[in-house]
Design a protein around this nucleic acid. Structure first.
Lengths: 150, 150
DNA sequence: CAGTTTAAGTTCCCTCAGGGAACCCCAATT
DNA sequence: AATTGGGGTTCCCTGAGGGAACTTAAACTG
């Protein structure tokens, strides 16, 4: 095995990386999210090699993150997010938040998000799904779960 | 340039990937987070090549995500998260949530998180930092920001 | 005091993955 | 008849990852 296979590890981070951890994959998801749904659109927007784009799209479809649907009688296809893929956008929004905060510099964030529920320009914040209070690295204690190896 | 440089793109996702998007980097952060702070500990835990681990640690230190501090008069060092790095753990917690949900299978999640504030086993949930309501992919509208290229 | 251990890398070689460009197929358009 | 467009596939070349051995320097070990 050349490239280490993360999917076998008993770790949800490693398993997630096995699906979207290869170079370009998160950017492909971003493109599909914002409306670039066809091969040539994504290729032109990202400047990615066509070979690698083919590989990544197949991998994402095989893993149920994207769906490939024809839009013509000719062999023409569109890629769109499945439910599983849409939930990955949470991850991208958190990446955006961190990148905006630490890497955007003086120019400010490249894009903004308007939250439809309140109409305001906003960012995501992590909360406990049980009590609703903030939940960050220092607020949690890590314990072995049922799927641990021990 | 062989590997495409994401850091130059006007996209906070791409810029974030430039810091932690290479293979192994998120897993190294996870290890440091849960208490593996020394070179050989991390190497043994992950099974990563020593060469690659050296490269990744240097990259993470250069980007201000990890700090390298001596713990002995001999050349012995520990790596720990900076503030910038600690905020990246948010990203890992969201990855864990998605991996638990979609990839854990029948065995269940490998690790659990106890939220100190409420004492319960919990997961993170994304909320709007303005109004506190849920904020996911379908709840936002994407707009150009001050740092956009146009 | 010679030999071994430990931590933290470094060096080497080998294979495979990514980049880039050209090519392919097939239907529609000019 | 020739060109265009979409969605790939094929080719070669370079460089990144894997794996194992080597290095350095201090500290134990007998």
């Amino acid at each position: 095995m050349q490239r280490t296979n993360f999917g076998e590890m008993a770790c949800s981070i490693a398993r997630t990386l096995d699906v979207i951890g290869e170079p370009w994959s998160p950017l492909i998801l971003r493109d599909v999210w914002v409306g670039f749904s066809r091969f040539d659109q994504i290729q032109a927007d990202l400047g990615i090699s066509r070979k690698v784009l083919t590989e990544r799209l197949n991998h994402l479809v095989d893993n149920g993150v994207l769906a490939r649907t024809p839009y013509d009688e000719r062999p023409r296809y569109e890629y769109h997010l499945t439910t599983k893929g849409t939930e990955l956008i949470d991850l991208l929004m958190v990446m955006v938040g961190w990148g905006d905060r630490w890497l955007a510099g003086e120019a400010g964030p490249p894009v903004l998000y308007r939250h439809r529920a309140c109409g305001e320009i906003a960012n995501v914040d992590l909360r406990c799904d049980h009590c609703g209070e903030p939940m960050h690295a220092s607020d949690v204690e890590v314990l072995p779960g049922p799927g641990s190896v021990g």
